[in-house]
Write a protein that binds this DNA or RNA. Structure first.
Length: 431
RNA sequence: GGGGAGAUUCCAGAGCGGUCAAAUGGGGCAGACUGUAAAUCUGUUGGCGCAGCCUUCGGAGGUUCGAAUCCUCCUCUCCCCA
């Protein structure tokens, strides 16, 4: 049995671990779980740390359990800034759960008949029938309010001059703790993992298991993923980076990882890929020699894009990136067939312009600021052009440039570019 | 209830009768440099038919040849005393 705790340790994925965990996991196959809120029908990369913990767990020969927080997700965890949530109706909940499972299947083996095959459970299943009286009698009486109030997440909310905390939120740790107890009883689950902000909630669970079941359970938390520049991990101006290709295209997903800063790349590659220590250290040495090649970012982007999407998606993302950031010219653009063109610019904002607009030629200013909203005003478009920041079909334009039907690619498209990174696809068609 | 301070362009914050589309800083955008990075430097940052014109300085009126700047009322914010 591979030493799971050691594996996470060198990867920098351990923030805190309860004494005895490592010994236990060397001795026997351990069932461990991570909770995920089913608030959407897709995971985003913020979830990936927990997923990777489970993935390593399974690879080390232990049994991973994903707990979908159908019940707890309705309450809202007071750890962190979360606000109280809306109730999900059951069909939505089930739908989300299915979608999450499909995504998780890229990382965890739910299917094979192996002793440590992954399992997914939903706490809504055991919480929905639990009556309030039942809960306070069977669970609540084993934990003192004093104990609950000593948790950091609670103390912060009680002391600060913030909004205070509702009873519902206060109860959250008990509900989560009960989940752990339930899994302990049903599946002999002895370990709960999560982000470092979950420590308090997890230990409420181990406490319940000790008091109610007389059992021994453990906790392991991972540091919260940060960015070297202080920004929030996994967020871009466009919002979350999702695993669902409908929400975040494979190209955007790939780009996210390619653009990770050097300072973060070393940490991320340990956390988000399965590469072993030797290989990573070799890569780092190479990267230090030739940082401009960005080997770490490329390895990260490769592994994740292939894991989450597919090899083919990875290849077209690389191809798209070469066209966009490489030596792509009007000529290369003209050579692209419609299908490739569309896949390269999938997810790029689109604008529709009637063919009549171009038939007699149209000044770029009007095209970019009147017929489309690529620029909010002509003044701004003019200024950016003066700086050489506007390109049509990858050719710089000035305010005198006139766009005609001659410029159209594949009978339908114009590629407008604002600065180096902002692309817009103008579709020339009646609609 | 009494007294005081204030409301300025994305934000912070100058301006206190003409020279104000409004200093300066931040942020944004673009350019150079680069590795699609960081740092740095440069330009730009109300709109338009752009050497000119139009709309902006909490709201409504007024004084004046002329107001972001002065007066009146209103709305809101902050501070101090009850």
């Amino acid at each position: 049995m591979i030493n799971f705790v050691e594996e996470l340790r060198w990867r920098g994925m351990i923030h805190d671990v309860m004494p005895g965990t490592e010994e236990l996991m060397l001795k026997e196959m351990v069932t461990a779980y991570v909770g995920i809120d089913p608030t959407a029908d897709s995971l985003h990369i913020g979830h990936l740390v927990g997923v990777m913990m489970l993935r390593h767990l399974q690879r080390c020969g232990h049994r991973p359990v994903v707990l979908v927080g159908g019940a707890t997700g309705m309450i809202g965890d007071p750890s962190g800034k979360s606000q109280e949530r809306n109730l999900l109706d059951e069909p939505t909940l089930r739908h989300n759960q299915e979608c999450l499972k499909n995504q998780l299947a890229h990382f965890l083996d739910f299917a094979s008949e192996i002793p440590n095959k992954a399992l997914m459970v939903n706490n809504y299943d055991w919480m929905k029938e639990f009556s309030f009286l039942g809960f306070i009698r069977d669970v609540g009486k084993h934990i003192t309010v004093n104990y609950m109030m000593a948790k950091d997440s609670v103390k912060k909310r009680l002391s600060g001059d913030g909004e205070g905390m509702s009873f519902t939120e206060f109860t959250y740790q008990l509900v989560q703790g009960y989940d752990f107890l339930q899994l302990y009883r049903e599946h002999n689950c002895k370990l709960q993992m999560g982000g470092s902000d979950q420590w308090g909630n997890i230990t409420t669970g181990t406490e319940l298991i000790r008091r109610i079941a007389g059992g021994e359970a453990y906790a392991l938390t991972c540091p919260l993923i940060t960015k070297a520049d202080g920004g929030k991990f996994g967020k871009t101006e466009q919002g979350n980076i999702w695993l669902d290709p409908e929400r975040t295209t494979p190209y955007q997903f790939y780009q996210f990882w390619i653009n990770v800063s050097d300072a973060d790349a070393s940490r991320y590659i340990r956390i988000f890929t399965l590469r072993d220590r030797q290989e990573i250290e070799a890569l780092e040495a190479e990267h230090a020699q030739a940082p401009h090649l960005r080997l770490l970012q490329k390895a990260l982007a490769h592994d994740l894009t292939c894991d989450v999407h597919s090899e083919a998606d990875y290849n077209s993302a690389v191809e798209a990136s070469e066209i966009l950031f490489g030596k792509g010219t009007t000529e290369t653009l003209r050579r692209l067939d419609e299908k490739t063109l569309l896949s390269v610019f999938d997810g790029v904002p689109r604008f529709n312009v009637a063919p009549a607009v171009l038939s007699d030629g149209c000044n770029v200013l009007d095209l970019l600021a009147t017929h489309t909203t690529i620029f909010p005003s002509k003044g701004e478009a003019r200024r950016t052009m003066k700086d050489g920041g506007v390109m049509i079909n990858r050719e710089k334009v000035t305010e005198e440039t006139v766009i005609t039907t001659q410029n159209i690619l594949n009978n339908r498209y114009l590629l407008a570019q604002r600065g180096k990174k902002n692309y817009y696809l103008v579709v020339v068609a009646d609609e």
